[in-house]
């Protein structure tokens, strides 16, 4: 009950897409669904079939489950919580952008008195949240969604201790040579100031004199690259791939000394390509470093 009570305090508002299971759906237009929603409902009423914004006119027929839609306007990590009074499950589904089907991108289940939590990074778009209570005594549940600001969120702030560990083991980046690597997005990992998803891709660049350096990165994902003074969280330059590109170029004047190159991704993985991976992005990259004339 404590969990349920605390849920009420959260500034949440999540409305159902359609009136798939409500006994008395409100008349008029369907309610818009927003981030920060808390919903109390129960699955004890008979299932109705109704048009749904999620389904874009298709019947929202889910057996005895409840269906909500959730509009994401900003790429971020989200946290969905379900506190059921029955043994229930929650699944977040992504609508395919080109085909009439959905992909489960995260799911969890809980017993009465427990909370099922789905943490998932989502791109802008329309998602469905399905509460399944079809196989158990049908009673009430709380549902809420919010931005995931925890340390385990895929998209979040750097964890300085984690980045320090990456710095300590960073391979050197040498002028005139190509650096090969595989990036993997990591909660709390090294994140560029102009990128999005922190990861494990860092390189150490040592200059014995000031120089203008050109860094070119190519990757399986849209990369962002940044140069920092080593051991300092201070950006000396940052550049990201333009929309639709998988290359980034940064030309920056650097002082003599040790620097840290950070490479991260401007995108999370498409869920339908990586089922149940919570948007974790991985891919190969190369970085070419060269000195150029001022």
């Amino acid at each position: 009950m404590q969990i349920l009570a605390s849920s009420l305090l959260l500034p949440l508002m999540l409305a159902r897409c359609g009136a798939a299971t409500r006994p008395s759906p409100p008349a008029g237009p369907e309610q818009a669904l927003q981030l920060g929603v808390s919903v109390w409902d129960d699955t004890s009423m008979p299932v109705r079939v109704a048009p749904s914004a999620c389904r874009q006119g298709e019947p929202a027929w889910l057996g005895a489950g409840h269906l909500y839609c959730f509009q994401v306007t900003e790429t971020a990590s989200y946290r969905f919580e379900l506190a059921p009074q029955f043994q229930g499950s929650i699944q977040v589904q992504e609508r395919d952008r080109e085909h009439p089907w959905d992909f489960g991108v995260g799911q969890a289940s809980a017993k009465p008195g427990e909370v099922a939590v789905v943490r998932v990074a989502l791109d802008p778009g329309l998602y469905q949240v399905v509460i399944d209570g079809s196989h158990w005594p049908k009673t009430g549940y709380w549902l809420q969604v919010d931005r995931d600001t925890s340390s385990s969120a895929l998209i979040g702030r750097e964890d300085r201790a984690r980045v320090a560990a990456l710095e300590a083991h960073a391979e050197p980046l040498r002028l005139g040579e190509r650096a090969f690597g595989v990036y993997r997005s990591t909660p709390g990992g090294a994140r560029t100031s102009c990128g999005l998803v922190g990861g494990d891709a860092v390189r150490r660049l040592t200059l014995d004199r000031p120089a203008r350096i050109r860094l070119r990165a190519a990757a399986h994902f849209p990369p962002a690259i940044e140069v920092r003074a080593l051991h300092e969280n201070r950006s000396l330059g940052c550049a990201g791939a333009v929309e639709g590109s998988h290359e980034a170029e940064l030309v920056v004047d650097l002082p003599a000394g040790e620097h840290l190159l950070v490479l991260d991704s401007l995108a999370i993985a498409r869920h339908h390509m990586h089922f149940e991976t919570n948007g974790i992005m991985t891919g190969a990259y190369v970085v070419d470093a060269a000195e150029v004339a001022p």
Partner: peptide, 8 residues
């Protein structure tokens, strides 16, 4: 060394 998603 890692999976889900598999690296290259």
């Amino acid at each position: 060394s890692a999976s889900n998603p598999d690296p290259p």
